[in-house]
Design a protein around this nucleic acid. Structure first.
Lengths: 120, 120
DNA sequence: CGGTATCCTCTACGATACTG
DNA sequence: CAGTATCGTAGAGGATACCG
């Protein structure tokens, strides 16, 4: 098990441990966890979707949130942004192959989550 | 699509939309997402584990964090706390059937996450 | 339409010390 | 050993307004 120690500006220490198996889970969670992220990917499963449509589909997320998540997803290589036309401006987002490879997990999660009703 | 509006103490409004499919994903994420939660469940997959062992296994999580997550997991019915002995105090945590039912998702997530190396 | 820019709040996470 | 208590901070999330 590797570990590293960093010291912040106030001289406080932070320990980063690199355990292997479970950290793969933490890492994966960072990719598809986080608010709205999984939902966004799931909404793109069938076809490209335009920005404002996505905002509406998510129902409750602000533009800013969706925008942020989309940028993360783009950086991670899960989503591609495409400009369809200027004047009027039109942009769509679609999944990459990598993004598509996450759908299995999300589908499983969705089914599992629906099959039992935990209140919050 | 149902939606509700709440007003907080400062008179600010919050809109809660109840979309169906993707919200199942958000709901599921609340159960197994969140820092360390997935990892904790995954560490309990084979056998009951004692509190401090869990803390060590996670490598990097503080007692407080582990304690908090375990309490959430207990409330959600995914984990059971068992007092093995007093003097010396010994407690173990193990998965319920429900908790076990989440292992498939986590295993899939782990494999997926390991099979591609996204930095951060 | 597809975003930015601002501002604000709350809570999640963490370091550390202490207890039965 | 298995927690609780305290205190602190960064940043995630959100309401709202504005822009090309």
């Amino acid at each position: 098990m590797k570990s590293s120690i960093e010291t912040d500006s106030k001289g406080r220490k932070k320990v980063f441990n690199a355990c292997d198996e479970p950290c793969a889970i933490e890492k994966g969670m960072r990719l598809i966890g986080g608010k709205w992220k999984g939902s966004i990917i799931y909404h793109l499963k069938d076809e490209p979707v335009r920005f404002n449509d996505l905002v509406r589909l998510l129902g409750g997320a602000t533009k800013k949130m969706v925008d942020q998540r989309l940028k993360e997803l783009e950086l991670e290589g899960m989503v591609i942004r495409k400009v369809i036309s200027d004047r009027p401006v039109a942009v769509t987002y679609e999944l990459t192959e990598f993004g598509r490879s996450a759908l299995g997990i999300l589908e499983l999660l969705r089914v599992w989550s629906e099959s039992n009703d935990i209140k919050l």
